[in-house]
């Protein structure tokens, strides 16, 4: 499942152009080693242009995530908001399950001082007002889409596979996605999102990434909504893998504990 926030993994394999189907290519992107845990700081710059005036807003969060290999849980994560000041300390706890079971989610609002149980969000909703939707951030199961190889295309000097992904299972807010895959790293480095009327809605570009041990880490990505003239630049830093986060960190006790 391509559902790891901010991190794209790669399988270091040799590439033989022209012999793989769209699905086989996406399976290579998908079938990557998964860290047991991850901690990262993310900054999102939200940029809007209205009547020629540019407005920028900053969001900063830290995210702790633990992935499970053999458990009812797929992952648990705790997101803490640091910026802007009026939401500082807000915490978001999520337990993701294997199979079709809905996520469990809790929100801690320091101003109210209480933990609120919340329902899983609409997949098409924007994440923190950014141009990334919850669907973009969590990804989709590989069996939920039909993949067609459209051909090869050079992107930033790299000869990429160009693949069309059309939803066949599960809900999606898109009619289709066009994905550019770098075959030397098995990274999806550009994605175009089309709305239900098949009009181009958003373009996502990976601008910077690096390899940390067996894992590829995306350091910078851009998502541009071409219909709203709004874009989000996401920077990821202070990434730690497999640092051994305690299981009870992902509980109400730590959700309410603001440093």
């Amino acid at each position: 499942m391509m559902k790891k926030l901010f991190v794209v993994f790669v399988l270091a394999a040799t590439v033989s152009f022209g012999q793989l189907s769209g699905r086989e290519i996406m399976m290579k992107v998908d079938a990557q080693p998964e860290p047991k845990s991850m901690i990262a700081t993310t900054e999102m710059m939200l940029i809007s242009v209205k009547r020629g005036r540019t407005k920028e807003r900053l969001r900063r969060i830290t995210r702790h995530q633990k992935n499970y290999q053999s458990s009812e849980f797929d992952s648990k994560s705790l997101v803490r908001f640091h910026h802007p000041a009026d939401v500082k300390g807000t915490g978001f706890l999520m337990w993701e399950y294997r199979g079709d079971k809905d996520d469990d989610q809790w929100l801690f609002l320091p101003a109210l001082g209480k933990v609120k149980r919340i329902a899983a969000r609409e997949k098409g909703e924007n994440f923190m007002g950014s141009d990334f939707s919850y669907e973009d951030m969590s990804g989709r199961d590989i069996d939920d889409d039909h993949f067609s190889l459209l051909g090869e295309e050079e992107l930033n000097g790299v000869n990429c596979y160009k693949i069309e992904a059309v939803p066949i299972e599960g809900e999606s807010s898109y009619k289709k996605r066009i994905v550019w895959v770098d075959p030397s790293r098995w990274l999806a480095i550009k994605v175009e999102y089309y709305d239900k009327k098949d009009r181009l809605l958003k373009i996502m570009n990976i601008d910077e990434f690096r390899k940390d041990g067996p894992y590829w880490t995306v350091l910078k990505m851009r998502m541009e909504n071409v219909q709203d003239n709004h874009k989000t630049i996401m920077d990821i830093s202070d990434v730690q893998y497999d640092s051994g986060i305690r299981d009870d960190y992902f509980t109400e006790r730590f959700l309410m504990r603001v440093d």
């Binding site: 809905d102 469990d104 989610q105 609120k116 149980r117 919340i118 329902a119 899983a120 609409e122």
Partner: peptide, 11 residues
């Protein structure tokens, strides 16, 4: 008590 039922939280 509080629990989600689909897109609704009952509490």
């Amino acid at each position: 008590f509080a629990r989600p039922l689909g897109g609704t939280v009952v509490r």
